[in-house]
Amino acid sequence: MRVKKKKSTVDSQKIAFYFVLGIASLLFVSFVFRAIILVSKSKFDGHHRFTIQVSKSGQKEEALISLEPSSRMLSVLHLPEGPAVNPVSRFLEVPIDGHVILTSESQDRYLVGLLKLETDIGGKDVSLILAKLILQYNQLKTDLTIMDIVRFAWFSKGVHKNMVKFVAVSKSLTESSIDRISSSFFPDTDLQKENATIAVVNATGVSGLGNRLARFISNMGGTVVSVSTGKSDEEDSKIIKRTKKSYTFSKLLQVTGFREAEIITPTPVPPDSLSLIPKEESIETQDSFVSDIIVVIGKKSLSKFVF
């Protein structure tokens, strides 16, 4: 009788052990699965420039915090009156990678504290403020994952004060003044190093869009060699790669949302024949031949352009 009772107790313990083990395994698998999803949705790769727009709900004041991990540089740009044109990427002609909207007074004070530091700001200050926002992540309105903010805060921590730039921008500044600031505060060093040449073709029928995109690309560190008008309007916007220099190509696809087009094999045009080609066609033929990448702006989704 005692043997049976002892055996029954052992069996119960085994069942309890396997039950607990099963629950623990399910929790572990669930945790790993959620971590994989979180990482896959993360935007910040820890290698290339990443810019976050921070704004207050219902207010015009905004700030941009931009980090270049490879060179350990941090830029903070303050827009006390907000941008003259929305979105802010259109006003500054730079890509914005993520947005954070502060929804409570307790969160607002973090932005106020950041901007009050001004020239005495360091990477640790930015990191500390972002770390405090992480604790209130569920109250933020943002398209960033908590992993993005954690990694951004971690990388910011290692930036020395001498490598932090701060500027306040008035919405009344001229385009040339804005471009000087944007190209200085938000360059992507990997774009600059690759130095792929880019031709912009405006095929929308809307005057000025080609120059706007050229400013946008130049301010982020790209090399625009020409801006021209298409022979006819096109519906779809597209980017054509003519080189193995892939980072610039993938970055342009990411920030513009344009589609990837088929690769065109260049056909050299004999110099003697250029005079026989109509002027408009001659411009496009030369652009296609000399540039590594061709960006064609189409009419579709004009209102969604970030530049």
Rank of each mutant, 00 (worst) to 15 (best):
V150W: 14
A131S: 14
F50K: 01
V167N: 03
K124A: 05
D179N: 15
V10S: 08
A16N: 11
V159I: 13
L92Y: 06
L133P: 09
M163F: 07
L117F: 00
S106N: 11
K304Q: 13
I178F: 03
Q192A: 04
S172R: 09
S282L: 11
S127W: 12
I178H: 01
I240P: 01
S172C: 00
V10A: 13
L253M: 09
V126E: 00
V76N: 02
G210Q: 04
V100K: 03
T119N: 14
L26G: 12
L77F: 02
V227L: 03
I96A: 04
Q254M: 04
Q286D: 04
F155Y: 14
M163R: 15
K161E: 06
I134K: 15
G221V: 02
S273C: 06
D143L: 05
V201G: 01
S40D: 15
F216V: 05
L92D: 01
S106E: 13
P80I: 05
F17C: 02
G82R: 09
F185T: 13
L102V: 09
M220T: 14
A24H: 00
L92T: 07
E61Q: 11
I96L: 12
Q254Y: 12
T142P: 14
T248P: 06
A153T: 03
L135E: 15
Q192N: 06
T103L: 01
I297F: 04
M1R: 07
L79K: 07
L209M: 14
S104I: 02
F33L: 13
N86K: 13
S275C: 01
S70Y: 05
S127C: 08
Q107P: 15
L64R: 10
N195M: 06
N211S: 12
